[in-house]
Computed example of a mutant assay.
Amino acid sequence: MNIQGDAAENHDPAGRTKDSGTPLLRNSRAVRGPSIADVARTAGVSAQTVSRVSNGLSNVEEKTKLRVLDAMKQLGYRPNRAARALKSGQFKSIGVIVFNLSTYGNRRTLDAIATAASQAGYSVTLIPLHDPTTGTVTGAYQRLREQDVDGVVIIFEAHLFDREDITLPEDLPAVVIDSTPGSGHPMVDTDQAEGARFATSHLLDLGHQQVWHIGGPVSSFSAMHREESWRRTLNEAGIEAPAVFHGDWSTESGYHLGMELGRNPEVTAIFAANDQMALGAMRALHELGRRIPEDVSIVGFDDLEESTSFWPPLTTIRQDFSSVGRLSIEKLLQQISGNNPASGVTTVPTRLMVRKSTAAPAR
């Protein structure tokens, strides 16, 4: 027993108070906690009925159920999760390890995961990592094991599994989102390459001779996939890709890079790797007196809810975060049930949302 504070100062291993030598009186229920039998006696029902109510089964009359629930509340009874897991083989709990909670995509994906898990009857335990290393990843896994989760969804948004020092244990079901597929576990992600191709091709089809790119951080898996696809699309059109301007996903970085690009009169089309950086670049272009889309067309990525309220409304790539979250839970539950899915990558399609921030270049 871990005794803290004042109680520790007034206790010795023999169970006597230090000031009087009188044995401490202990309530056995306080030590072990109320049992199913205690609840059954208080509610005047059988232990089997208490078990049915505890497990959420429907074959109990409503008035009896209410009486049992009232007894549980009165006694402070909590179902023994370990015992229930031994019986069912599951704790009905899923862990989520996420790196960088600040990005729009990760927040939306996490919301979709929580919704899908709840609909399947599972709770979610979240562990955010600010600096994913061998120690922090291992520590996060250990913490989730201690909390008795059935499986884990990992949202790293980085090339972590290219590093030899980071591996995932094989004894816990897992699904990876937004990272390199080297983990050996199933992976679910937006079709980043398709979205970047849609954005770049749209600008080329409008007649722009070059498309400049405001990319995300080089550590980001999705940013690099978008950048590679942008460059490949230009090359396939016979155009040599210019230098990339890397931001950090923030509006501020988009603003500073937009200032650099906007001062170049040859820049007539920009593809930004997310909507926040696109918004920052749009502000820079406005301040420089370059009209959108008459002088410069710009495309974002994500389709923020606010994208339609940018001025002008932003042409962007829509990601289906709900499907990413739902599919990750589906694949994880397949593993938990013993029906292991293939360890390949499942990609979710994107859509080009054409609005008022793009147009043919001025002649």
Rank of each mutant, 00 (worst) to 15 (best):
S309H: 15
W311E: 05
H256F: 08
M259K: 13
T251A: 13
V324N: 01
V296A: 02
S250M: 05
G344H: 14
E287K: 07
H246C: 10
V299M: 09
H246E: 10
R263E: 14
L261K: 05
S328Q: 09
A342N: 13
S343P: 08
E305H: 14
L257I: 12
D275V: 02
D320Y: 13
S337L: 04
A273F: 02
F301A: 06
N264Y: 10
S309M: 14
G325L: 09
M277N: 04
L261H: 06
D302R: 03
E260T: 14
I298G: 04
W249D: 01
A273P: 00
K331P: 00
I336L: 08
F310M: 09
V244L: 14
I298L: 11
M259D: 07
V324M: 03
A273K: 00
G258E: 06
S250L: 04
L332H: 12
F245D: 04
E260Q: 15
G300L: 09
F245C: 09
E260K: 15
L288C: 06
L327D: 03
T308A: 14
S337T: 14
I336W: 06
S307V: 04
E252M: 08
T268D: 06
A273L: 04
D295G: 01
V244N: 04
I329D: 02
G344F: 12
A243L: 13
M282T: 00
F271T: 02
R263L: 12
K331A: 11
A281K: 08
M282G: 00
P341W: 10
P242C: 13
G344D: 15
M277G: 01
F301Y: 15
M277F: 01
Q334H: 12
H256T: 14
V296K: 01
G289R: 11
T308M: 07
E252I: 06
S309L: 15
W249T: 02
Q319T: 04
V296G: 03
P242M: 13
K331E: 07
L285F: 08
P293Y: 10
T268K: 12
A281Q: 08
G338K: 11
A284F: 04
E287I: 01
L333E: 02
Q334I: 01
Y255Q: 11
S309F: 15
P242S: 13
S343D: 13
M282F: 00
S328P: 09
V296C: 03
E260P: 00
N264D: 15
G254N: 07
Q319C: 01
A243V: 12
W311A: 11
Q276G: 00
E266G: 12
F301D: 01
P312Y: 11
I317V: 15
S328E: 10
H286L: 01
V267G: 03
G262T: 07
N264A: 12
P313K: 07
H256L: 13
D295M: 04
E305D: 15
F271P: 01
S337A: 15
I292R: 02
L327V: 14
Q276A: 12
I317K: 03
T308W: 06
A269F: 08
K331I: 00
A278D: 05
R318T: 02
